[in-house]
Lab assay of single mutants.
Amino acid sequence: ATVGSICDLNLKIPEINSSDMSAHVTSPSGRVTEAEIVPMGKNSHCVRFVPQEMGVHTVSVKYRGQHVTGSPFQFTVG
């Protein structure tokens, strides 16, 4: 992922509605921003955001307030 470019995290989660999901990204400096959740068809969801700084980011994806399997996810920008 690169700073200022759209970053997509694709998840396969069976039998949940994306409208019941939420996602937030925490940057290396601790800034928390909301991420967009895009339905991608049956059981597939895309978490979309634009990182604003380099370094390790943490993406928390929740369904009805509970982390989904594997969340929070970490990835490096830059």
Rank of each mutant, 00 (worst) to 15 (best):
A1R: 04
A1W: 14
A1V: 06
T2W: 05
T2P: 02
T2Y: 03
T2V: 05
T2M: 06
T2D: 00
V3D: 02
V3N: 07
V3S: 03
V3F: 04
V3A: 02
V3W: 03
V3C: 04
V3I: 14
V3H: 01
G4E: 02
G4C: 00
G4P: 01
G4K: 03
S5E: 14
S5W: 03
S5Y: 06
S5T: 10
S5V: 02
S5M: 07
S5D: 10
S5H: 07
S5K: 12
I6W: 09
I6F: 09
I6N: 04
I6C: 08
I6P: 08
I6Y: 09
C7H: 01
C7G: 00
C7D: 00
C7Y: 13
C7V: 11
D8G: 13
L9M: 12
L9S: 06
L9F: 00
L11S: 15
K12C: 09
K12N: 13
K12A: 06
K12D: 13
K12R: 08
K12I: 10
K12H: 07
I13Y: 00
I13M: 02
I13W: 00
I13S: 02
I13N: 04
I13F: 01
I13A: 01
I13T: 03
P14Y: 01
P14E: 05
P14L: 03
P14V: 04
P14K: 04
E15R: 06
E15A: 09
E15S: 09
E15I: 13
E15P: 03
E15K: 06
I16T: 08
I16A: 10
I16H: 10
I16R: 04
I16L: 09
I16Q: 04
I16E: 03
N17L: 08
N17E: 13
N17F: 07
N17K: 12
N17H: 07
N17I: 03
N17Q: 09
N17T: 06
N17V: 05
N17R: 10
N17W: 04
S18G: 04
S18F: 05
S18T: 06
S18L: 05
S18Q: 03
S18V: 04
S18D: 01
S19F: 09
S19T: 03
S19P: 05
D20G: 09
S22T: 13
A23E: 02
A23H: 00
A23C: 00
A23N: 03
A23L: 00
H24V: 09
H24T: 11
H24N: 09
H24R: 09
V25E: 04
V25I: 09
V25Q: 06
V25D: 08
V25A: 12
V25G: 06
V25W: 06
V25P: 02
V25K: 06
T26C: 10
T26N: 08
T26L: 07
T26E: 11
T26P: 01
S27F: 06
P28R: 03
S29A: 02
S29R: 05
R31Q: 12
R31T: 13
R31P: 14
R31D: 15
R31C: 10
R31W: 11
R31N: 10
V32K: 09
V32L: 09
V32W: 09
V32R: 11
V32F: 11
V32T: 12
V32C: 08
V32I: 14
V32D: 10
V32G: 11
V32N: 14
T33H: 07
T33S: 11
T33W: 09
T33I: 14
T33Y: 14
T33K: 06
E34N: 08
E34S: 11
E34A: 11
E34T: 11
E34I: 14
E34M: 10
E34F: 06
E34K: 12
I37N: 05
V38W: 08
V38D: 06
V38I: 10
V38G: 08
V38R: 15
P39F: 04
P39N: 11
P39E: 13
P39C: 10
P39H: 12
M40L: 05
M40G: 15
M40T: 15
M40N: 14
G41L: 07
G41D: 10
G41A: 08
G41T: 04
G41I: 05
G41Q: 12
K42N: 07
K42I: 05
K42P: 09
K42F: 06
K42G: 08
K42C: 05
K42W: 01
K42T: 09
N43A: 12
N43W: 05
N43E: 14
N43I: 06
N43H: 02
N43Y: 07
N43D: 15
N43L: 03
N43G: 15
N43M: 07
N43T: 11
S44Y: 09
S44C: 04
S44R: 13
S44I: 01
H45F: 07
H45Q: 15
H45V: 14
H45L: 09
C46K: 15
C46E: 04
C46R: 14
C46N: 15
C46Y: 03
C46I: 07
C46W: 00
V47N: 02
V47K: 00
V47F: 03
R48Y: 00
R48S: 03
R48P: 01
R48H: 00
R48F: 00
F49K: 01
F49R: 01
F49A: 03
F49I: 04
V50E: 02
V50M: 07
V50L: 09
P51Y: 02
P51M: 02
P51A: 11
P51C: 02
P51H: 05
P51V: 02
Q52N: 14
Q52W: 12
Q52S: 12
Q52A: 11
Q52H: 12
Q52T: 09
E53N: 06
E53Q: 09
E53A: 07
E53C: 13
E53T: 12
M54N: 14
M54A: 15
M54R: 07
M54I: 15
M54L: 12
M54H: 15
G55R: 02
G55M: 02
G55C: 02
G55Y: 04
G55D: 11
G55S: 07
G55I: 00
G55Q: 02
G55E: 05
G55H: 09
V56K: 10
V56G: 13
V56C: 08
V56Q: 12
V56E: 14
H57N: 14
H57L: 13
H57A: 15
H57T: 14
H57F: 14
T58P: 15
T58M: 15
T58L: 15
T58N: 14
T58W: 14
V59F: 01
V59W: 02
V59P: 01
V59T: 02
V59C: 02
V59H: 00
V59K: 02
V59Q: 01
S60W: 05
S60N: 07
S60P: 13
S60C: 10
V61I: 01
V61R: 01
V61S: 01
V61D: 01
V61T: 05
V61M: 03
V61F: 00
V61W: 00
K62G: 11
K62L: 13
K62F: 15
K62C: 08
K62Q: 12
K62Y: 09
K62R: 11
K62T: 14
K62E: 14
K62H: 11
Y63G: 15
Y63L: 11
Y63T: 15
Y63A: 15
Y63R: 10
Y63P: 04
Y63I: 13
Y63N: 14
R64Y: 10
R64M: 14
R64K: 11
R64H: 14
R64W: 08
R64S: 13
R64V: 11
R64T: 13
G65C: 14
G65S: 12
G65E: 14
G65Q: 13
G65F: 05
G65V: 09
G65Y: 14
Q66E: 13
Q66F: 03
Q66R: 11
Q66A: 14
H67G: 14
H67N: 10
H67T: 07
H67W: 08
H67L: 04
H67A: 12
H67E: 12
V68P: 04
V68M: 04
V68A: 05
V68H: 13
T69V: 04
T69S: 12
T69P: 14
T69H: 05
G70N: 12
G70F: 00
G70Y: 05
G70I: 08
G70D: 15
G70P: 07
G70S: 14
G70R: 10
G70Q: 14
G70E: 13
S71Q: 04
S71Y: 00
S71L: 02
S71P: 02
P72V: 05
P72S: 00
P72R: 05
P72E: 06
F73G: 01
F73T: 04
F73A: 01
F73V: 03
Q74C: 00
Q74M: 15
Q74A: 15
Q74R: 13
F75S: 15
F75T: 15
F75C: 06
F75M: 15
F75G: 07
F75L: 15
T76Q: 12
T76R: 10
T76V: 09
T76N: 13
T76C: 08
V77G: 04
V77K: 02
V77M: 00
V77F: 02
V77R: 01
V77T: 04
V77P: 05
V77W: 02
V77D: 05
G78E: 03
G78S: 06
G78R: 04
G78K: 06
